[in-house]
């Protein structure tokens, strides 16, 4: 299910208030099973882009094709898109509402019109996928820890069996171990289940370590679209957008400056260590 954004533009504001172009003529194509990192400063239009891709808001101009279909075409049932593109919002635990974890995860598939048996099966699979134990299934979601709540919320999306998963900063507010668990889960969904993943993150270190391709947004425009190694070569440009390089890349640049001839395109600790060892020995 490839996604194509074709000249997507979204303008906020009405007649009276000043207009802001949140997404400005963005075009790209994402193939099946890719792990995309979407980065940009707060207010660069990332979140708006995610909502456009999942059909929650309508573009001012341009459109999105999913699986070859124009999702904003007049005769297209926009409701059906929610089963194809799952979106995990920031702090998704804020959307939990049912009495039990299991019921909450059933909400999505039930809305899609699945019968009781199928719904429960989907919910069960999704809860297993995010690694929750059976004993929490019948607890109130509000009694769980922060990390668990977030998993329940993600399961609530996965239970709709989307082929494309869109996540807006899914690790915000979690501790380092919690962050890693969620990112590993997402990576697993992409690699094992073949989902296409679009991940919004503020952490360059995480993006460098996990994704296949980076989209950089600034002021509503798509400025860089490249594999991580290439994307992080644009040091000045990124800094101009208020973004930093991964910490190890910054370190490699400094190491080169003191006269040690290392390549500066390492983006993870592992790569950096290998490169330093290669040069020194």
């Amino acid at each position: 299910m490839p996604i194509i954004a074709d000249g997507l533009t979204y303008v906020y504001g009405s007649k009276t208030k000043a207009k802001t172009t949140a997404v400005d003529n963005v075009t790209f194509k994402i193939n099946d099973g890719q792990f995309i990192g979407l980065i940009g400063h707060t207010g660069s239009g990332k979140s708006t882009l995610l909502m456009l891709l999942s059909g929650l808001i309508k573009p001012t101009s341009g459109t999105v094709y999913i699986d070859g279909e124009d999702i904003f075409a007049k005769d297209f049932d926009l409701h059906s898109i929610h089963g194809k593109v799952g979106i995990v919002f920031q702090y998704p635990e804020n959307q939990l509402f049912e009495e039990t974890v299991f019921k909450d995860v059933c909400f999505g598939p039930k809305n899609m019109g699945l019968d009781k048996k199928e719904t429960e099966l989907c919910a069960y699979e999704a809860l297993k996928l995010v690694g929750l134990e059976d004993e929490v299934f019948y607890q109130s979601p509000f009694d769980l820890s922060g990390g668990q709540k977030r998993r329940v919320a993600i399961a609530g999306i996965l239970s709709m069996k989307p082929k494309i998963l869109v996540l807006d900063e899914p690790t915000a507010g979690l501790d380092p171990a919690g962050r890693k668990e969620i990112l590993d889960l997402v990576k697993n969904l992409c690699r094992e289940k073949g989902m296409t993943v679009i991940l919004v993150s503020h952490s360059m270190d995480d993006v460098a370590e996990y994704v296949d391709r980076i989209l950089v947004m600034n002021d509503g425009r798509l400025e860089i679209d490249a594999v991580p190694k290439e994307a992080f070569k644009h040091k000045e440009e990124l800094e101009g957008f208020g973004l930093a390089l991964p910490q190890v890349t910054q370190a490699m640049i400094k190491i080169k400056e003191i006269g040690i001839p290392v390549r500066t395109d390492a983006i993870t600790v592992e790569e950096a260590a290998n490169e330093i060892m290669r040069v020194l020995y």
């Binding site: 501790d175 380092p176 171990a177 919690g178 270190d205 910490q247 190890v248 600790v269 950096a272």
Partner: peptide, 28 residues
């Protein structure tokens, strides 16, 4: 469930691989 900064981790990795780098490095 905590993690050291990436720079510290890099230094730690290099040390493990035999480079003579002091016990704990905090900054670039």
């Amino acid at each position: 469930k905590l993690e050291v900064p990436q720079i510290t981790l890099l230094a730690h990795t290099l040390r493990q691989r035999g480079l003579r780098i002091p016990e704990c490095v905090l900054t670039v």
